[in-house]
């Protein structure tokens, strides 16, 4: 079974994740969709790692995992801080950087 099959799944997963980030307004769900996209990337890393017979791809996955964990920790902290301030805030309600 060629790697192409895995890559197609990864691409589809990535597209679904991106669609979720773009369409959902709940910051928590947007975060989950980001995780979907990261997983899609991980899947491609592993696939290419296998087809190139190189451990580098798997090491990259390791790092992506770590960064994802850190990102989730900080991101959720921010969401908690915001929602504490205002219940039911959606991603559209926050526009501190509005020009």
């Amino acid at each position: 079974m060629s790697q192409s099959a895995y890559l197609v799944v990864a691409a589809a997963l990535f597209g679904l994740g991106a669609a979720g980030v773009l369409l959902r307004k709940n910051p928590l769900v947007m975060f989950m969709c980001l995780e979907l996209m990261l997983n899609a990337v991980n899947l491609t890393f592993v696939s290419f790692s296998r087809s190139l017979n190189d451990v580098g791809g798997q090491v990259s996955v390791f790092f992506v995992l770590v960064v994802a964990a850190a990102e989730v920790v900080v991101g959720l902290g921010i969401i908690v801080a915001i929602v504490r301030r205002r219940r039911g805030a959606s991603a559209d309600d926050m526009s501190l950087l509005k020009g």
Binding site: V21, L22, K25, A91, M94, S95, L97, K98, G99
Partner: peptide
């Protein structure tokens, strides 16, 4: 005029990125 592009909305920026 250009300022209007900066909506401050993260979803807008995400859309631009996508």
């Amino acid at each position: 005029a250009i300022r209007r592009l900066q909506s401050g909305q993260v979803r807008g920026y995400a859309l631009g990125m996508a």
